[in-house]
C-alpha cells in the first residue's frame, strides 16, 4: 500500500515579478513502512517538495494523495488537521518550546487534537519511552543534550501515531556520534513499521536508508534502491 502518491507535482513562486519554478513535475510513490531519503543540493527544490508532501504548502499543479486522501486542494484548516493526525515532523533545529518540559513538548500535538489531559500525558510518556527518555520527562530543553533534544522532538513527532514521519536534516545540528544514535533510533522505529522520509544533502546519511530519491532543478534525477 502506498502512503504517498505524488503525480506531476509543480510549484511556482513569484518573487516580485520573477517567476521561480521550484518543482517542475515530480512523480513518485512511497510504500508503507519504507525508509526513504530525499536528497539534493541546496536550491534543488527538495525543501519545497518536503513542504508540499508535509502539507505545510500546497502545489501549484499536480496530484498528491496521502494515505488515500487527496490533499492537493485542501483548505488551511483541513491541512492543519492532516498535519496533526497523519504527519510527524523532525527538524534540524529541534524546534522545542524552550520554557516547557520534555513531556509538555511531546503533549503539544495532542492538545491540538483535543485529547483529554490524562490520555495526553499517558501517550506522551509512551512516546518518550520509545525514544528512551523516560527518565527525562520533566527536563526543559536547556537541561538536555542535543541528541536528547532531538529524541524529544522525535517523540513529539510519533505521539499522534502518524502515517509518515518527515525528518528534515535530523542530524544536521549534531556531532557524528549523536547523529549516529539518532539514525539508529530512526531505524529502530522503521523496523517497527514506521514509514519515514528523510531529507538530507549528505550522501553518507542517505545511503543508510532503503531508497534515495535525488532531486535537482525541481525534477527527480534518480530514484535508487540502496
Amino acid at each position: 500500500m502506498n502512503v504517498i502518491e505524488v503525480k506531476e507535482l509543480e510549484k511556482t513562486y513569484y518573487v516580485g515579478d520573477i517567476e521561480v519554478k521550484a518543482l517542475r513535475g515530480v512523480t513518485f510513490d512511497i510504500q508503507k513502512s519504507q525508509f526513504s531519503a530525499i536528497m539534493g543540493p541546496s536550491g534543488s527544490g527538495k525543501s519545497t517538495l518536503m513542504h508540499i508532501i508535509g502539507c505545510l504548502d500546497t502545489p501549484s499543479k499536480g496530484e498528491y494523495n496521502l494515505n488515500g486522501e487527496n490533499v492537493a486542494k485542501m483548505s488551511d484548516d483541513q491541512l492543519a488537521k492532516i498535519r496533526n493526525k497523519e504527519i510527524g515532523f523532525v527538524f534540524q533545529k529541534f524546534h522545542l518550546l524552550p520554557r516547557n518540559t520534555a513531556l509538555e513538548n511531546v503533549m503539544l500535538p495532542l492538545k491540538y487534537a483535543n485529547i483529554g489531559r490524562l490520555e495526553r500525558s499517558e501517550k506522551a510518556k509512551e512516546a518518550l519511552a520509545q525514544v528512551g527518555l523516560s527518565d527525562r520527562i520533566d527536563h526543559k530543553p536547556s537541561e538536555l543534550s542535543g541528541g536528547q533534544q532531538q529524541r524529544v522532538a522525535i517523540a513529539r513527532a510519533l505521539v499522534n501515531s502518524p502515517a509518515i514521519l518527515f525528518a528534515d536534516e535530523p542530524t544536521g545540528n549534531l556531532d557524528s556520534k549523536t547523529g549516529e544514535e539518532v539514525m539508529t533510533l530512526l531505524h529502530k522505529l522503521n523496523n517497527n513499521g514506521q514509514t519515514i522520509v528523510l531529507i538530507t544533502h549528505e550522501k553518507d546519511i542517505a545511503v543508510q536508508t532503503q531508497r534515495t530519491i535525488f532531486i535537482r532543478d525541481g525534477k527527480i534525477e534518480s530514484d535508487t534502491i540502496n
Binding site: G54, L56, D76, D77, A80, K81, R83, N84, K85, F89, F91, H95, L97, L108, P109, Y112, A113, R156, N160
Partner: peptide, 16 residues
C-alpha cells in the same frame, strides 16, 4: 514566528 510555525506544523489551525 518560529514557534508559530512549529505550532502550525504540529496541527494548530489559524483559529488556534
Amino acid at each position: 514566528t518560529r514557534e508559530i510555525g512549529l505550532r502550525k506544523a504540529l496541527g494548530a489551525t489559524q483559529q488556534d
